[in-house]
Structures are given as C-alpha cells and as structure tokens.
Amino acid sequence: MNFHETFFILLAAIIMIFSVLVVTTDKILRAATYLLFVLLATAGLYYWLQYEFMAAVQVALYAGGIVVLIVFSVLLTHQIHHKLVSITLTRKLLAFGIAGLGALVSIVTIVNYDFNTAPAEAMKVDVRQIGLHLVNTGHNGFALPFEVVSILLLAALIGAITIAKKEESNSDNI
C-alpha cells in the first residue's frame, strides 16, 4: 500500500466516521460541527484528485459559507438546547436494513462493472484552464453562463433579503 492509497483511506475514514456522527449525535450544534469535518475531508479528497481549485471552493463555500449559515440558523431556533428524542428499535433496524441494502447494491454494481481506462490523456483542470473557459466567448466558451451566474446570484440575494428581512411595519417587535 503506497502513500497515495493511504491518503485516500485516511480521508475516506474521516468522512465515514464523521458522517455517522452527524446523524447519530443528539445535539444539533454538534451535528453541524461534524458536518464541517466531513466537508473539509471532502475538500481533501478533491485535493487528492488534483482538483486544487475545487478543493479551495469546497473549503471556501461549503466549510466556510454553508456551515456558518447552518450554525446561524441553528442558533436562531428556540429549541437548540433540547435533545433529540431517542429513536425506537424498529426504526433503527429498518434504517440499518435499508442502508445495508443500498450498500449491497452499490458494492455489487461496482464489483461487476468493467472499468475501462480511456486512451485519451486526462484533461488538465487548473485555475487557468477554468478561467480561460470562463471568459471565452467562442467555441467551448462559458462567457454567457458566467454572466447568467451573476443574474442567478442577484436572484438569490433578493430572495434571501425578501425572506429573511422583516417588513418595516412590524420591525419594532424584533
């Protein structure tokens, strides 16, 4: 087992352990913290695949943005100090059965699948390539989607403000 494989197994182990902890912990804020570790390990996985930019995005957006949002929304609720009600045994068994079935299907599919290596050389995906495609207006260019993204972000911003912001008339009872 070489270094490359060890690195993957390490990251996969971190992701699996903390994923299980996210759903098994009975405190919601702890679940959010475990989710942070899962997302960071996923960033490590992207780095392992040599998608350095994707790894950076994963850390900045998911670990930095989404988790902060989740933590804030958790802190906004009234009942954060309440513990989760314990799950009944039938439900646990049912969940284990379904999860096991899903795992079985996945494993059987992966084992039976005939993996062929493509003869073409792997495409280089670094920040420069992404940038070149992003501003390219010609063939294989993504200039229009790039501009559409700004419209999408604008819509998201307006939507967020509309939902989260209280109206002027009843703002005095915050």
């Binding site: 949002l69 804030f72 967020a160």
Partner: peptide, 8 residues
C-alpha cells in the same frame, strides 16, 4: 442569518 446569506 441575513448577513450570513448575503455573505454566501
């Protein structure tokens, strides 16, 4: 929460 959304 609002600031977190705008930040995102």
């Amino acid at each position: 929460y609002l600031f977190a959304l705008i930040y995102l």
